[in-house]
Structure formats: structure tokens, C-alpha cells
């Protein structure tokens, strides 16, 4: 019988560095490893990832498995599943974790079926059950209305983890680890897709995902012009503008502004929700914020159940006054 041991995480690179989600996964993996008394592995797969091994070790990996090949430049389901499948069959980790990113959410399910095991997607908490030693996987379900805790009966126990819910360890460049280089050995015939083009839709100014303050508007804002007022406040607070789904659907703002289950998952210090009713699908995208403030004219709006501070009133009256008071205190 195969012995499954160790925790493996699938690493991703961004702009020549480890992606933030990867450092978060390493932090989470380290904890699971210390509960299990096992080692932490990091898989690094791409066209030019050999230079990231030390960084992975500094953030917590014991062993780094690297596959660097020009054919792996673009993420493609067939090539990545093949490469990861091969490593996992050799390594036989007990737990295998991915980021819930555009790569992870495609790769992990397909790989789980290939390996004849299962995966829980979009987890916000992972821990080891002290009795069974199984991985307890907590994930939001029903659009954020509820959470479910799952275990998996087969190995490796796989999960994808939501961005910004785990904490990375402090980078420690004195940490030691081992690097294992693996050949991609890909058969071109087996890659059935072709990436023709990549289109990056850059937002101006501070990125929504990175902003410390986000001013978000909902259906009640009513127009493109309304969002100009939110922009003014966001600029003042050195933040970014977000939105619920209706403003994106109505074309008042680009679709990249959407916060929520099917939009961006963010965790700013301050989230100001203006004329947003507080649907579960929206709140799941911002509930990681340290403080949430709501402005809504309806005192019964669900959003007041979920936030720390609120003002009941028409935003067209409340927001300008809020903005000018902020200006005042900034000037002081």
C-alpha cells in the first residue's frame, strides 16, 4: 500500500516573484505540517521558476520540486495536469493545496478526478482533526449564506484556498531546504488547447485587491456620474473603487470592479459600502475587511446585520458631507 505523507502546495509565480497566495499557502501548510509532524513541499512549475526556490524555502518550504520548461510558459490544463500528476504520484503527499486562483480552480478539480481522489474548493480554513488526523476543510457555500466543513476519504486530500485568508510566515532567508529538479518531459501531442492571446485589463491607480481602503457602490448609486463621487472619496483616502454586481452589469463601472463571490475577494482595512443591500454573494467578497461601514437609506437593509458602523440615509446627502468632513480632518 502506498504511504501518503507530507503536505504539498502548488506554487505560483507573479512578476518574477512568488505570488502572494503562494506565501499564504506556505504559511498555512507549515501549520498543518507541525500538527502532523511532517514535511512541507512546494511545487514550482513554469517556464522560468528555478530562481524562486530560495524564496519558497525562506517562506517555509522544506523541499522544493521544480519543473522549468518553455512549454509551461502558459498555463494549460493538459500540460499542467500531466506534470503535477507525475510529481504527486512519486511524492504521494497526504495533503495537496492550491490557491483558488484562475490556475488553481482549473487545475485542482481536473487533477483530483485524474488521481481518483477529491478536492474541496475555495476553502477559508484548513486544520487537522486531532482524532482522525484528517484535513478539516471549511468553505463558504450557498453564495456565502453558510459554511460547510468537509473531509475527504481518499489521498491526497486536496483543497484550493481563497486568497487573503491565510497569513504568510515572516520571510527567513537563513532557512535551509532541499531543491529537486524534475524534467517536464512533455509530449506535445497531449496538449489539446492552444493559448492564442492574453489580454490584461489593468485598472488605473491602486489595485482593488491591494487597496487599504475601498469605497464600493451598489445599484442605489444609479449612474456613471454617481460613481464619480465615490471615486473622489476613494482618491482622498488613497483607496480604490469597487462595486456590487448591478453597477458592473449596467456598465456604470468595468466588470473588474465587482466585489463578491464571482468578482474579487478583498480584505482591506476599511470597506465603505454605499447603497449596497448586503447580499451574501457580495458580502462573502468583503467580509475579510477589518472594518465595514454602510450607507443605505433602508434601515432594514441586510447590510446593517453585517457591518460595524452605519448611517441610514440617502447617499446623495450623506456621501458629500462624509467626503467634505474627511477633507477637513485630513487638512488638520
Amino acid at each position: 500500500m502506498t504511504e501518503y505523507k507530507g503536505v504539498a502546495i502548488f506554487g505560483e509565480a507573479k512578476e518574477g516573484k512568488l505570488a502572494v497566495i503562494t506565501t499564504e499557502l506556505l504559511g498555512c501548510g507549515r501549520k498543518l505540517c507541525s500538527d502532523l509532524g511532517q514535511e512541507l513541499y512546494c511545487l514550482l512549475i513554469g517556464s522560468d521558476v528555478s530562481n524562486l526556490t530560495q524564496e519558497a524555502i525562506a517562506f517555509g518550504a522544506d523541499k522544493v520540486y521544480v519543473v522549468s520548461d518553455p512549454l509551461l510558459e502558459d498555463y494549460q490544463t493538459d500540460s499542467y495536469v500531466t506534470v503535477v500528476e507525475r510529481i504527486v504520484r512519486q511524492l504521494t503527499p497526504q495533503i495537496l493545496i492550491f490557491g483558488h486562483t484562475s490556475i488553481g480552480r482549473d487545475l485542482a478539480p481536473r487533477l483530483a478526478f485524474r488521481l481518483d481522489t477529491a478536492v474541496s474548493t475555495d476553502c477559508v480554513e484548513l486544520s487537522i482533526d486531532p482524532n482522525s488526523k484528517l484535513l478539516l476543510q471549511t468553505k463558504p457555500v450557498y453564495g456565502g449564506n453558510a459554511q460547510a466543513i468537509f473531509t475527504i476519504d481518499t489521498y491526497p486530500q486536496m483543497a484550493t484556498v481563497r486568497v487573503k485568508v491565510m497569513s504568510p510566515l515572516q520571510r527567513d532567508d537563513s532557512r535551509q531546504g532541499e531543491v529537486v529538479i524534475i524534467e517536464a518531459d512533455l509530449d506535445l501531442q497531449t496538449i489539446r488547447t492552444k493559448v492564442l492571446e492574453k489580454v490584461v485589463e489593468e485598472e488605473e491607480g491602486i489595485k482593488l485587491e491591494d487597496a487599504a481602503v475601498v469605497v464600493s457602490g451598489g445599484r442605489g448609486i444609479g449612474s456613471v456620474e454617481g460613481f464619480k463621487q465615490l471615486e473622489e472619496l476613494a482618491k482622498l483616502l488613497k483607496g480604490a473603487v469597487g462595486a456590487s454586481r448591478p453597477p458592473c452589469d449596467n456598465g456604470w463601472v468595468p466588470s473588474g470592479y465587482q466585489v463578491g463571490l464571482t468578482g474579487k475577494i478583498i480584505a482591506p482595512d476599511l470597506y465603505i459600502a454605499v447603497a449596497i443591500s448586503g447580499s451574501s454573494q457580495h458580502m462573502t467578497g468583503c467580509s475579510g475587511a477589518k472594518t465595514i461601514v454602510a450607507i443605505n437609506k433602508d434601515p432594514e437593509a441586510n447590510i446593517f446585520q453585517e457591518v460595524q458602523f452605519g448611517v441610514v440615509g440617502d447617499w446623495q446627502k450623506v456621501l458629500p458631507a462624509f467626503t467634505s468632513k474627511v477633507k477637513e480632518i485630513i487638512a488638520e
Partner: peptide
């Protein structure tokens, strides 16, 4: 292949503090 151990609704800690004022503008300030 998966087992659902528990399904629950997360409880929200704390209550929302509704900030008031004599007018919407004052509440905002």
C-alpha cells in the same frame, strides 16, 4: 468521496452601530 461534517451559518460578532445626527449631513460628519 467527501464527507460533510457540518453545515452552519457563521454568526456575526458585534452589532452595527448606527451613527445618527439631526440631518443626513450631520450623521455623515
Amino acid at each position: 468521496r467527501t464527507r460533510l461534517l457540518k453545515l452552519f451559518q457563521p454568526v456575526h460578532e458585534g452589532e452595527c452601530e448606527i451613527v445618527g445626527g439631526d440631518s443626513p449631513e450631520e450623521a455623515a460628519a
